[in-house]
Amino acid sequence: MKPALQLFVMSCCLAFFPVVAPCLAITPSETMQDTVHSILAILDEGDRTDEKVWEKQRESVSRIVSDKFDMREMAKRSLAKHWNQRTPVEQDDFAELFAELVKNTYIDRLRNFSSAKDGTSFDKEIVRGGKGLVPSVVWQNSQQISVVYKLYSKDEIWLVYDVVIENVSLVGNYRSQFAQVIQKDGYEALVRKIKENLADPGKDGKGGE
């Protein structure tokens, strides 16, 4: 009887393993829902019009973004072939600069997000190989904005490496810009321009001011 019991226990384990295993790992969709809801939770705290409160909220949001968005991967993809031509120190510096650029741009936009009127909803995820797509809709001012998060699995954690807003890829957009600036004026000019942008966003626009 004993071997039969063993066999029974083993086949039970084998039968249940495939069901249990995927439940344990957090999916790309869960990762994004967790991230977005955590950010919304922070935004709901306190009065965002107050500079001091906002500064604190901004810092908390920035921490979550750093956790879940692989800024180094985004920077690498944005720089494309030029990434490998840089020294490790330059790569580190660039990744840091890039992270600041992206955070500056997107976190500040959240300031106007009204959690009472606006919201976000998620569609079914697509997972292929080590990558995942999480489609979502952001409802703002009664408009629907399509936002697709692209994630990849790194050490069993899902990290965002690109965001596609209304079909426009963030990384793709930076790739085009960076390639043209480097081709025309070189890598140093690109770094200078990013630093200028961080110091004074929109310097190149605003009616040629």
Partner: peptide, 19 residues
Amino acid sequence: IIDEAIDPYVSMRDIYVQY
């Protein structure tokens, strides 16, 4: 879009085509 762009002209062109 203009504020966040490193080269606003290229950014706008790219956004237009991707969209």
